[in-house]
Design a protein around this nucleic acid. Sequence first.
DNA 1: GCCACAATTGACGTTTACGTAAACGTCAAA
DNA 2: TTTGACGTTTACGTAAACGTCAATTGTGGC
Lengths: 141, 141
Amino acid sequence: MTESLSISELSREFEVTPRAIRFYEDEGLLHPKRRGRQRVYSNRDRVRLKLILRGKRLGFSLMEIADMISMYHSDPGETAQLDYFITRIDDRRRQLRQQREDIETTLNELDIIEKQCRERLENLEVEKQPTHREASASRLK
Amino acid sequence: MTESLSISELSREFEVTPRAIRFYEDEGLLHPKRRGRQRVYSNRDRVRLKLILRGKRLGFSLMEIADMISMYHSDPGETAQLDYFITRIDDRRRQLRQQREDIETTLNELDIIEKQCRERLENLEVEKQPTHREASASRLK
DNA sequence: GCCACAATTGACGTTTACGTAAACGTCAAA
DNA sequence: TTTGACGTTTACGTAAACGTCAATTGTGGC
């Protein structure tokens, strides 16, 4: 059941180049098995790649992403390490909340801008047909 | 009332280096006035810088940010341009929504991870005091 | 066994977003 | 007048994240 994929299959599935995937491995973010020289990606690797790409969409650097992924599996033994670990989690959380806030703000602004655009569009439509023709309904181009 | 700032004042206010600010100008994202050779930043420039930094926090490239900022002020005259404009807005919106979704997912995962950490922490505390000492309250280091 | 094609491994190139250093102007305080 | 503290331009350096190209090396299919 543990599907194993070649690099090109994985590449197509996530729309990233094989080069990128190999690069992530060089950077220690992926550790596929090998069949001879060939890389074989397990389902676990797929999940990791998904995490990497999600991190990228959020603008994180590969190092930050590596750090986050390590959180998923690391099992720090000592209390001090656990404390530090939790601190790191908190930092990430703060950062993500900030981003979420930035997104809300930007989305609101986009709404306003689009509204202005649509108004401007309507005005242009009206200008184009200044005659007594009735309601200028939506015109299909 | 239109406060005018020097580059170092602006730099301190937003915690970016003067170098970065000049770079944004080179890239066409800022257009401060000049008093002689010196740059003078108006309130409008401050707002722009704020937008730039917000874009950066969201992981956008300077080019994308420039594009977004242009949306705030551009006044496309033709209908076709307006249509294209609205398309661009929609694209950005889609991207931002995706990011927001990614953030929610990640935040949830962080919650789970932290919870596991805290459980592990409690276990460690218990292990350290296996005697009949009463409730192990919080210890200050 | 041979061929086409996929995969691998270097190695160098490229873009983005600044950092850093050099060399100089400016103005006010000591 | 010297000395900082800023500011400017020019230029080169750099780290990150791949792209690109070449040279090999398997490897499945006939």
